[in-house]
């Protein structure tokens, strides 16, 4: 990781990382070649020579009743000729029986490692019963990764396009999208999960990065408030329309005595355990106020609170 003042080529880096990540996601069966030329142990070396020549390949898996039992290559053929074996000698006598193979369900990265480890040009692919189901070369992996990458890229692009045009496509006096999440009290471990979903939704809708950051930080603080400071949790609702984004949270207790004071930095009612977790220093509502264009809270002790934070689409920047 380099420390530089200016950031450049960030997209290239992201693309590269995506390809690297893909090797850990894509399975062998997604990139292998399923149509495999095979021979049986009874195939003569003369026939093998003909097969290698006509198919323009340098090796084939040896299969008996569908089971992978060996592999034979051009090298074995050359050795057989050098040993002056009779041409009617069979594949079964000359093949390599200890075959390095890869399973169809394994990750592509396993195959990459095997190629690097053994230096082979191809790996037979078997299913869980040891039946040959395909063959894999280095270029199969490259081609397969590129295909999967472009498919995923297109799928995300289409999703993003559709989402970002939703307000144009739907004709009404006022179109709003409402995202609702129920937030359970005390569920600290999952805190932020709802906002994480909201962030992805807003990205697809094409929100600009500055606005996205202001909204997600505010939503996250609001979500943590519901988790840490309410009796039974509450609702997090986000209303999105072309003019503004509004975050609303509602809970049913315990409520705040002096709701306006709660916006002051440092105002807190948090218990020690909350503070130990890195929250509850009275900065949550202050942050929401700081990042939003308008924030207000209505609260009645023993009844509950309602928080409203508004983010105007224009002017776009307030950081």
């Amino acid at each position: 990781m380099s420390i530089k003042e200016k950031s450049k080529g960030k997209n290239e880096v992201n693309e590269l990382t995506r390809v690297q990540e893909l090797v850990y996601e894509v399975r062998v069966k997604e990139v292998m070649t399923s149509e495999v030329v095979t021979v049986s142990p009874d195939t003569t070396m003369r026939d093998l020579m003909r097969i290698l020549r006509t198919k323009k390949i340098s090796g084939v898996p040896v299969v008996d009743g569908g089971d992978l039992i060996g592999i034979i290559s051009l090298e074995d053929l050359v050795k057989a000729v050098a040993d002056r074996q009779r041409p009617q000698d069979t594949v079964g006598n000359r093949m390599t029986r200890k075959v390095v193979f890869v399973r169809a369900d394994e990750l592509a990265v396993q195959a990459v490692n095997l190629f690097a480890q053994h230096g082979y040009g191809r790996l037979p692919v078997v299913d869980n019963d040891g039946k040959l189901v395909g063959i894999l070369t280095g270029s199969d992996i490259t081609r397969g990764l590129l295909r999967v990458l472009s498919q995923r890229y297109q799928a995300e692009e289409i999703r993003r396009y559709r989402a970002s045009h939703i307000f144009k496509d739907i004709d009404s006096e006022q179109t709003s999208l409402i995202l609702s999440y129920h937030i359970a009290a005390g569920d600290f471990d999952h805190g932020g999960a709802a906002t994480s979903k909201l962030k992805r939704a807003l990205e697809r809708l094409g929100a600009n990065p500055a606005l996205l950051r202001r909204v997600t930080i505010s939503s996250y603080e609001a979500e943590m408030n519901l988790i840490l400071h309410t009796t039974r949790g509450g609702e997090l609702r986000v209303v999105i329309n072309p003019e503004r984004i509004v975050i609303i949270t509602e809970d049913d207790g315990p409520g705040i005595e002096d709701a306006e004071a709660a916006f002051k930095p440092g105002f807190t009612t948090a218990a020690d355990w909350v503070r130990e977790l890195g929250f509850g220093a009275g900065m949550g509502l202050a942050n929401i106020k700081r990042y939003s264009d308008h924030a207000s809270i209505e609260s009645l002790p023993d009844k509950g609170s309602r928080l409203l934070a508004v983010f105007e689409m224009s002017p776009p920047d307030k950081t």
Binding site: D189, G191, G192
Partner: peptide, 13 residues
Amino acid sequence: LTNQQVLRTAEMA
């Protein structure tokens, strides 16, 4: 701090 909220915070920020 090593809890999951550090990661969530990082995601948002």
